[in-house]
Design a protein around this nucleic acid. Structure first.
Ligand code: MN
Ligand code: MN
Ligand code: ZN
Ligand code: ZN
Lengths: 159, 159
DNA sequence: ATTATTATTGATATTGATTATCATTATCAT
DNA sequence: ATGATAATGATAATCAATATCAATAATAAT
């Protein structure tokens, strides 16, 4: 089953989400400030991923003296609380690996970085279905698996 | 079926891969230079994803006067030829989106950026299997779907 | 309510990666 | 060999992200 969990800007309980985030901030020892409220508002009300600069520009409309540094600091806190995700954009990030012919994905060791390509994923068909269910026409996907390679598993076992 | 397509450093046809890349460079109008050969050698022989700086440092061992700019330019060419992939590292890239509770993935519109979370992917179980087949113990994965949202599909149709 | 403690803020400076510029050099078709 | 020009690398510029620190604001204690 495929479930759509999205809450978008028109959703009336957006305000509840912000209040919930504020509660979590306080409960974990962070102080509740106007700059932070402005940042939370922007993030909780957006239905797109935003760059720190975009968050900064939007939040300054209600909090003109906001500093960009505060945006970075707030993002870090929200990430530690698992309230936000960091999204990868196509064409960003700069780690280069030789490709293979055809359509493949990568399995990478988080310890030593060694990587292998694989293909033959059965899920590809389901991607279409998920997109269609949400009204999207799919054009591509991004998949990477992370883990420990045989070598690193062995070394970990020895210690 | 899951097929491992990896060619690593010990693989004797690594040299063939570099020759093949050189052939493609020439065939598409690029000149074959010593700095480029040194860069190709590093990338084709590596079994990890490398940053531009890492490629630069390794390639300077055989090509001491190599400039970092040339590394960036060569990467761009190789990317256009689809000979390399740009790999995302965990914790890099800075586009922020509110998360949801639980384990979900994101479907994003490449036109307007609007995004929805989904869960219930059937493939998750297969990830373990793929990793095990390659001798890896999986610890996580990264999946994003890209496409056009309903709104952008409609607008595209109108033009 | 007042005060004390200290987390938070934002101005400023710094770092570090990526891109732009341009005179010099090397490749390759002729 | 020669010439046209693609490619190179030194240098400078840009831009995001991080570090520093005195001033400020939020919270707990009184
Ligand atoms: Mn795929
Ligand atoms: Mn998943
Ligand atoms: Zn490893
Ligand atoms: Zn759209």
């Amino acid at each position: 089953m495929i479930i759509n969990i999205n809450n978008n800007m028109e959703n009336p309980n957006t305000v509840t989400i912000q209040k919930e985030w504020e509660r979590q901030l306080q409960q974990t020892g962070s102080r509740l400030t106007e700059p932070r409220r402005a940042i939370l508002k922007v993030i909780t009300e957006s239905d797109h991923p935003l760059t720190p600069i975009q968050i900064y520009d939007q939040a300054r409309q209600s909090e003109p003296y906001l500093g960009l540094v505060t945006v970075y600091r707030t993002i870090e806190i929200l990430e530690n609380l698992h309230l936000i995700d960091r999204i990868h954009n196509l064409g960003q990030c700069q780690t280069i690996f030789r490709g293979t012919s055809g359509h493949q994905h990568l399995l990478t060791c988080t310890q030593c970085g060694s990587s292998v390509h694989f293909e033959g994923l059965l899920a590809e068909a389901q991607f279409e279905e998920i997109a269609a269910f949400n009204g999207y026409k799919i054009s591509g996907h991004w998949l990477q698996l992370y883990g420990l390679c045989q070598q690193c598993l062995k070394e970990e076992h020895e210690n």
